[in-house]
């Protein structure tokens, strides 16, 4: 019993990480209908910046966890946001009027560039960050126990907070209205005076910021990363976004949670060898039953 509960906890925390990264995919897709393959690598860049920020802060003798985490978050979000903006400006904006596939290839190229640029400047070795926050809450269940580390609680809290703020921004603010207008009809939106280029840039920055948030939290939690770390987690997050219905914010989070849970439960109760096979099969199955994902709006076929 304790084991099953523990696996649920494992799945939820893993899922919230997927969800956080999936938001970046889903927002970009929602607004301009492109799969941003470089998103996983933006996450990877943010992991490096996290470690660099921590290294610099500790170099100046700062030891307290709150200051380090706030400083790191600030620095990482700022720099990663800049990456998001520049990537959009260089690799995607010139292709605004081209076919979606051209943008996709450009994104794959961008992903290669980011990976190798980081590898060349930082070296190919495995990197790590020191453990800053240890300890866990434990509940005894039967003769075993279920635990959730403080770091995991922190991740859950921040991702829910991030989701909440983002939902508020998209639903209630002027910026959000402009985003939604651009999503529905880019041409019409620009006729109505919305600077769609700017909106799209903003969306990319928001996507990168969410990736940065995930980058800081996950790097602090797992401690290990290298220049290749964005690939697997990127694919998983993308799967989560599609599972939940790409383009839908709550869908991304839901998809992430489902994916995380299914992985943890399958790995924990059946076999960790085939957990990815199971996840992808689940995805195929869900898409066969609901062709636009769990919370996605069915595409209206226009003649």
């Amino acid at each position: 019993m304790d084991i099953v509960l523990q696996q649920l906890v494992n799945g939820l925390t893993l899922g919230s990480v997927y969800g956080l990264i999936a938001i970046g995919y889903t927002m970009v897709y929602g607004i301009i209908g492109m799969i941003n393959f470089a998103h996983g690598d933006v996450y990877m860049v943010s992991a490096y910046i996290t470690a660099i920020a921590i290294a610099i802060l500790t170099f100046f003798g700062i030891e307290s966890f709150p200051i380090i985490i706030v400083g790191t978050l600030f620095l990482t979000v700022a720099v990663t946001g800049a990456y998001g903006w520049v990537i959009e400006r260089i690799a995607y904006r010139p292709l605004r009027s081209s076919s979606r596939l051209a943008v996709l290839i450009s994104a794959i190229g961008m992903s290669l560039i980011l990976q190798n640029y980081v590898q060349l400047s930082q070296g190919a070795n495995q990197q790590g960050v020191p453990t800053l926050l240890t300890g866990a809450i434990r509940f005894s269940v039967g003769d075993g126990f279920v635990q959730i580390t403080y770091m995991k609680l922190f991740i859950l809290f921040v991702s829910l907070l991030g989701m909440g703020i983002l939902t508020y921004v998209i639903q209630k603010t002027k910026l959000g209205r402009m985003c939604r207008a651009t999503q529905q009809d880019r041409k019409m939106a620009s006729i109505l005076g919305i600077d769609t280029d700017k909106v799209i840039s903003t969306v990319f920055v928001i996507g990168a910021v969410m990736a940065a948030l995930a980058g800081v939290l996950v790097t602090l939690d797992y401690g290990a990363f290298d220049f290749y770390v964005g690939f697997i987690i990127g694919i998983k997050a993308f799967t989560a976004a599609v599972l939940g219905g790409i383009g839908s914010l709550p869908g991304a989070m839901l998809g992430g949670l489902i994916l995380g849970l299914s992985e943890a439960l399958f790995a924990g109760l059946i076999s960790s060898d085939y957990k990815d096979v199971f996840s992808f099969s689940l995805l195929v199955l869900i898409l066969i039953i609901r062709p636009s994902g769990l919370l996605g709006k069915p595409e209206v076929e226009k003649v």
């Binding site: 797992y222 770390v229 987690i233 943890a264 960790s272």
Partner: peptide
């Protein structure tokens, strides 16, 4: 390439 082995 994965980093989360908690389930395992």
């Amino acid at each position: 390439g994965e980093k989360d082995f908690n389930a395992l």
